[in-house]
Design a binder for these strands. Structure first.
Length: 348
DNA sequence: AAAAGTACCTGCGCGC
DNA sequence: TGCGCGCAGGTACTTT
């Protein structure tokens, strides 16, 4: 389901509700929704109960919520003999400034709660194909809720956060932060400055094209090296993140590129144009609240976005191409649909 | 090493 | 109405 615009709608919707909230209850209704959680680090519910959420951060389609460290961690003496990063003066492993005892990720004092958590741990989430994060009045259940967090917010009071996922390709986990390879802020955190720390599970993906630190030149060079079709390259989250099947088809339509054209053979000017189209499509979709065809994709209140009305190629098979009037076709590719206009998106 | 294939899942809508 | 089938917006792991 959700690609960058949809995940960003979720992030922005959650941000005011989770920032500063304490997790007062955790119900894991289906353990398969924890499949990326490493049980060795402790029980998900136990670790999370009592922890305080500090914000909501996103890179591409990955979401995470930095947690305040546990009381136990806060008692750790300022011992610079272990794991301290000389250059930053901070503790690489925990994301905490060892000398000052303050949390370098937020600049705030580490709070008690979430016993067993290390400073710099996060609640990480991926929505997969069908995941939703719904904010509800306590007592309001949703069918297919897999994990429920009860949030206690100093201003908003008590809320349920239902993680709903039909297909169970998504999930939640507790993860630790590692330094970003380029030492720049990890992702988009709204009001929260995420710092140059990223969850281990998301560390391998590239920045997304709306990230101010996205490296355009590295992307163009990466495309030039790919011996594969351009759509495969766009969907490769290690090259550029946040794009899924819908926006790949839409951006390729806008750039007049055939989905299976060899990435390496595309001239630089057209690679530049493609990136511009990618950004345009993602920004427009975001402005309309994301794309939804049904209740499968919704924001945190359960409402749908409007971008489905603006699609030019995705799902438009049989209809006229809005640009040239040719007929949009759907072809099976990579076990999914590719939608394009054979007239203005020619392979050669 | 990079690229392609496969596994992971459930529910819905469609045609018969 | 009931049933089987195809379809779904993603990622991680394995194989080549």
């Amino acid at each position: 389901m959700p690609e960058l615009p949809e995940v960003e709608v979720v992030r922005a919707g959650l941000e005011p509700a989770v920032t500063g909230a304490v997790i007062s209850g955790v119900e894991v209704l289906d353990r398969r929704a924890l499949k990326r959680h490493d049980p060795i680090r402790g029980d998900f519910a136990t670790l999370l109960t009592g922890a305080r959420l500090r914000g909501a951060v996103r890179r591409g389609k990955y979401l995470w919520f930095p947690l305040a460290g546990s009381s136990r961690e806060a008692d750790v003496p300022a011992d610079s003999s272990t794991g301290s990063d000389v250059l930053s003066g901070g503790d690489v492993l925990s994301g905490r400034d060892v000398l000052s005892g303050r949390d370098v990720l937020s600049g705030r004092d580490v709070l008690a709660g979430g016993d067993g958590l290390a400073g710099g741990d996060v609640l990480a989430a991926h929505l997969g194909m069908s995941g939703q994060m719904l904010l509800r009045e306590p007592g309001r259940d949703d069918k297919l809720t897999r994990i429920r967090l009860t949030l206690d917010h100093p201003e908003h009071g008590e809320l349920w956060l239902n993680f709903v996922d039909q297909r169970l390709f998504g999930g939640m986990m507790i993860d630790s932060l590692v330094p970003t390879p380029d030492a720049r802020p990890a992702g988009f955190g709204g009001a929260l400055e995420p710092g140059a720390w990223i969850p281990r599970t998301a560390a391998h993906i590239a920045r997304d094209p709306l990230d101010p630190h996205f490296d355009d030149r590295a992307f163009f060079a990466g495309l030039a090296r790919r011996r594969t079709g351009i759509k495969r390259a766009l969907l490769d989250q290690t090259l550029i993140s946040g794009i899924g099947n819908i926006y790949a088809d839409e951006a390729l339509w806008a750039a007049r590129l055939h989905y299976d054209r060899q990435a390496a053979g595309i001239p630089l000017t057209r690679r530049r144009d493609l990136l511009e189209q990618v950004r345009g499509v993602l920004r427009r979709a975001l402005a309309e609240g994301g794309t939804s065809f049904d209740a499968q994709y919704v924001n945190v209140n359960g409402n749908s976005g409007y971008f489905a009305h603006s699609l030019n190629a995705y799902g438009q098979q049989g209809k006229a191409c809005p640009r040239c009037g040719g007929e949009i076709v759907r072809e099976s590719f990579m076990n999914r649909g590719s939608h394009f206009c054979p007239r203005c998106q020619r392979k050669r």
